[in-house]
C-alpha cells in the first residue's frame, strides 16, 4: 500500500522567507493523522503543498504515490477557515460538489445535511462557524476521496462545535475507510480524533508515529540527580530537568526500564507533544522514527 503522504526535502519560500525547509515525512495510509505544531511551524504550508494548492520551491511531495495535485478526485481538501460561498445556499453547495466531482456521493451528502439539521435553502453566509465547517466537511466527504486533508478545520470553532465536528469526522472515517490528515495547534483535538501523530516544529518533523506506540514508549523518569550520560544507551532523552537533588527525564525507549531507583510515570499525549515542541531545535536531525 502506498504512503498517504510522502515528502522529501520539501521546502517552500515566500519571497525571502522560508515557510518550510527541508521537510522529510512519511505517513502510512489508513490512519487519522494529527499534524500538530506551534503557529508558524509550516503546517498549513505542508498541507497546501500536499493538495497542490502551492508548488514546492525545493524537494517533492507525493500523495497516494503520485505527485501532489495530480489526483484531484482522490484527495479531499477542507481549507483553513473552511471557506464557503456566502451567497450560495447549502443545496447550491451540494450541487456544486455534484457538478465538479466525478465520484460524488449524493445520498451521503443529503443524509449528512439532514442529520446535521442544515436547512438546504439557508445561505452559507448565514450559517454559524460550526455549521459552515460541517458543510465544508460534507463537500470533502461526499467527494469520496481516498485521502482527506483538513487544514485547521476547528481552529475558529467554540469548544462544543469542535467536539461535534471531530466526532462527526470520526464517524465518517469509520464508515468510509479513508485516510485523514488534519492539522491543529491544539493537542486535545488530536487526542480526541487521531491515531497517528506528527509533530512539526520549525518545519522539522520532531516525532512521527502511531499514538498508542508513542505513549507506550515514552516515559517520565524521576529520581536522584544524575546526568543524561548515565542513562542506558537505548534510552533516548527527549528532555530533561534538574533540581539540586532530583533529575527528571522524558525518555523514549522500547525496552523495559530496569533501574529501580527511578519512579516511572506514564505520559499524556499533551506532555509528549509539549516535550517535543519545547525542545531546542537541534541542528543535526535526531533519529526519531518509532519502531513498530
Amino acid at each position: 500500500m502506498n504512503a498517504a503522504l510522502q515528502a522529501h526535502g520539501l521546502g517552500k519560500k515566500y519571497g525571502r522567507r522560508w515557510a518550510l525547509t527541508d521537510c522529510d515525512l512519511e505517513v502510512p495510509s489508513g490512519h487519522v493523522v494529527g499534524l500538530v505544531g506551534p503557529n508558524g511551524a509550516g503546517k498549513s504550508t505542508l498541507l497546501n503543498l500536499s493538495v497542490g494548492m502551492l508548488s514546492p520551491t525545493t524537494g517533492s511531495v507525493e500523495v497516494l504515490g503520485q505527485p501532489a495535485g495530480t489526483q484531484q478526485a482522490k484527495v479531499g481538501y477542507v481549507a483553513q477557515d473552511t471557506p464557503t460561498y456566502a451567497r450560495l445556499s447549502v443545496a447550491d453547495h451540494l450541487r456544486l460538489g455534484a457538478h465538479l466531482n466525478p465520484e460524488w456521493d449524493d445520498s451521503l451528502a443529503q443524509q449528512r445535511i439532514q442529520r446535521l439539521r442544515l436547512d438546504p435553502k439557508q445561505r452559507a453566509g448565514k450559517l454559524s462557524g460550526g455549521q459552515r465547517a460541517q458543510l465544508a466537511l460534507t463537500l470533502g466527504l461526499a467527494k469520496r476521496p481516498e485521502l482527506l486533508i483538513l487544514d485547521e478545520p476547528v481552529a475558529a470553532l467554540d469548544p462544543l462545535a469542535r467536539r461535534e465536528f471531530l466526532q462527526d469526522l470520526m464517524e465518517a472515517v469509520a464508515e468510509q475507510e479513508l485516510s485523514v490528515v488534519l492539522s491543529s495547534h491544539l493537542v486535545s483535538d488530536v487526542e480526541r480524533s487521531c491515531d497517528y501523530l506528527v509533530v512539526l516544529v520549525d518545519s522539522r518533523v520532531q516525532v512521527n508515529g502511531e499514538i498508542d506506540t508513542l505513549l507506550a514508549t515514552h516515559h517520565r523518569l524521576t529520581g536522584p540527580r544524575r546526568t543524561a550520560k548515565e542513562l542506558p544507551g537505548d534510552q533516548y532523552v527527549v528532555n530533561e530537568s534538574h533540581t539540586d537533588r532530583q533529575s527528571s527525564f522524558l525518555i523514549r525507549t522500547d525496552r523495559p526500564i530496569l533501574d529501580p531507583s527511578w519512579s516511572v510515570t506514564q505520559l499524556t499525549l499533551e506532555d509528549l507533544v509539549l516535550a517535543y515542541m519545547g525542545r531546542e531545535v537541534q541542528s543535526e536531525r535526531p533519529v526519531l522514527e518509532v519502531q513498530r
Partner: peptide, 14 residues
Amino acid sequence: ETGTHRLVWGQSIS
C-alpha cells in the same frame, strides 16, 4: 478575497 478559490480548487477540477 473570500478564500473560496481554495474550496473550488479542492474539487476535482483543474
